[in-house]
């Protein structure tokens, strides 16, 4: 249940940004959750819904984008089949996780400024 502590970090980061920009309210948050981020998107959403009450995010819907984890060869760029050994058989090198597969990123926020 580390989703709650993650949401806490998220909301305090948004509060900081809003303060620095003198925002009146936050209207929307966009968060990207990679399949290998260690975060369950539904739990994260539930944690956010619980936690946002009474914060500057109280009226800000959360837009969650899930990113599927894919691996490929860092040398020949050939994708590794899902569930297969994480190694390029042709190049004999370890596979590399493609961008975003393990991301847990606050992409953007929409602020209401005076």
């Amino acid at each position: 249940m580390h989703e709650y502590s993650l949401v806490e970090s998220l909301v305090s980061r948004v509060e900081q940004e809003a303060r620095e920009r003198g925002a009146l309210a936050v209207h929307r948050l966009s968060v990207r959750v990679g399949e290998l981020s260690g975060v369950d998107p539904e739990l994260f959403r539930t944690a956010y819904e619980t936690f946002r009450a009474g914060t500057i995010c109280a009226n800000a819907p959360l837009a969650l984008t899930s990113v599927v984890a894919t691996w490929s060869c860092p040398r020949c760029a050939k994708p590794i089949a899902r569930g297969a050994v994480l190694r390029c058989r042709d190049c004999d090198v370890p596979a590399r996780l493609d961008d975003g597969g393990d991301a847990l990123t606050l992409d953007a926020i929409e602020l209401e400024v005076p």
């Binding site: 993650l6 940004e17 991301a103 990123t105 926020i109």
Partner: peptide
């Protein structure tokens, strides 16, 4: 009237940790 400003952050939520 107040204005809606999109702010692009692209930051790791665990950046503090």
């Amino acid at each position: 009237d107040p204005e809606l400003v999109p702010v692009e952050l692209h930051e790791k939520i665990l950046a503090g940790n």
